[in-house]
Write a protein that binds this DNA or RNA. Structure first.
Lengths: 225, 225
DNA sequence: ATTTAGATATGATATTTGTCATGTTTTGAT
DNA sequence: ATCAAAACATGACAAATATCATATCTAAAT
């Protein structure tokens, strides 16, 4: 079993303040897991007995709305933890996590996290910082949802994915979402998302090949009203 | 100067895990402040050197959107802390705080908070819990904004204010918001908010007297589609 | 290579929401 | 009590978005 201490992901994650001994403890009780594209890591309402540390791959966090549609609340990458929020308040998770490509995750049991929170104030602080950051992001999302048009939201989603997750050798976005997923990110009907993407394509702001999307003109997307 | 130890607000707030000594320290360096209805406590972009503990009154947290409209992100009551998020990540505040009625707040300097975070893991834990809770709330708001109609959002806002902040002897909501504020809570045009409220009134779901609103039929509001 | 379900695309139309104009009511200051 | 400014209200219309229908494309399974 690989050691957490040597995991490249560690330096990006909230785990960076843990000492060698603490990391060894985690290594000893963690379980690695491979998750295939499309598979569910956990589902809204489930109780988790620990957190997942994302070693590789990308997943979406979704929440089921009253009208039966899924809303994508966040995209999660390498280095992020999954499930820490619900662990801390000791509740069932409020979001579902679904892999968007093949993933490598490590499951770290609850007790391990709590004992480190209790004994290592730097770790607590990092966790606090992570949550404070997430909270700020959430505030931004709320304002965007409330005040911007579908076109603007979709343009921003494309820019966000472009800059945060990067592109492959051909220039296509590394994160591949279905049109339905895009609709679910910006909170609109699938047809509306398709229409707006078609328009962006006509205007040369993006190019597509199947479900792969290439962002040609970030500045142009920023100017969308 | 009044002592934090005796402050009724303490038991509701994240400060509840602090020891007598820690509270005495805070008492010694805190400053009490009276804030009048409509006054700004802090503005988006400002740097805070501490947090505000709300002793009495209600305020709104708003964020200016790119189109120049304010979005109300959260309503804050007795017992809540203001500014802890920005303190923890050491950034300027991302929201403005404006009093909705006369308020009593205490300002607690940064160092005091940090030293307690470092030395009292229960306090850190309470802070984490508070943020985890806020994060869950934010997720819910995001989904509602993205998936529900203005009518539904306004109905839910009324229910939320009704149940969370209560009513006066005559049955009117304790929190008095202008129509513009309601629009800003649900993310719509002021005229739209006015129209929907008028409709709710016609349907007998609410009653109004000036800007005061009485919720007559919570169940009816829940059924709004 | 063929099939076929699912995804993407687009038109037609309905519904929701925003904007502008204008009138009325409320509120607070004098 | 009076007045002005702000808040509230409502109509008419425009724009954005959703919904339904249907056609085409794509990718995975046989």
């Amino acid at each position: 079993m690989s050691k957490c201490e040597q995991c490249i992901v560690r330096e990006f994650s909230s785990l960076k303040s843990l000492s060698k001994e603490e990391l060894l403890n985690i290594s000893g009780c963690k379980t690695s897991k491979t998750i295939k594209k499309g598979e569910v890591i956990f589902e809204e309402g489930e109780s988790l007995n620990g957190v997942y540390c994302v070693k590789d791959g990308i997943c979406k966090l979704t929440k089921l709305s009253a009208n039966g549609k899924d809303q994508i609340v966040k995209l999660v990458v390498k280095g992020d933890l999954l499930g820490q929020r619900s662990l801390i308040v000791n509740e069932a998770v409020n979001l579902s996590a679904v892999a968007l490509n093949n993933m490598e995750v490590c499951f770290i049991p609850k007790d391990e996290i709590f004992s480190n929170l209790k004994n290592n104030s730097d770790f607590s602080m990092d966790m606090l910082k992570q949550m404070a950051h997430d909270l700020k992001e959430s505030d931004n999302v709320i304002v965007n949802m409330a005040q911007k048009s579908v076109k603007q939201r979709l343009a921003e989603a494309l820019i966000y994915i472009h800059t945060s997750f990067g592109v492959d050798k051909e220039g296509f976005l590394n994160v591949i979402l279905s049109r339905e997923d895009y609709a679910s990110v910006v909170g609109t009907a699938t047809e509306s998302a398709i229409r707006v993407l078609s328009q962006f394509k006509k205007e040369g702001l993006i190019a597509t090949s199947g479900k792969r999307i290439k962002v040609n003109d970030v500045e142009g997307l920023k100017r969308i009203e």
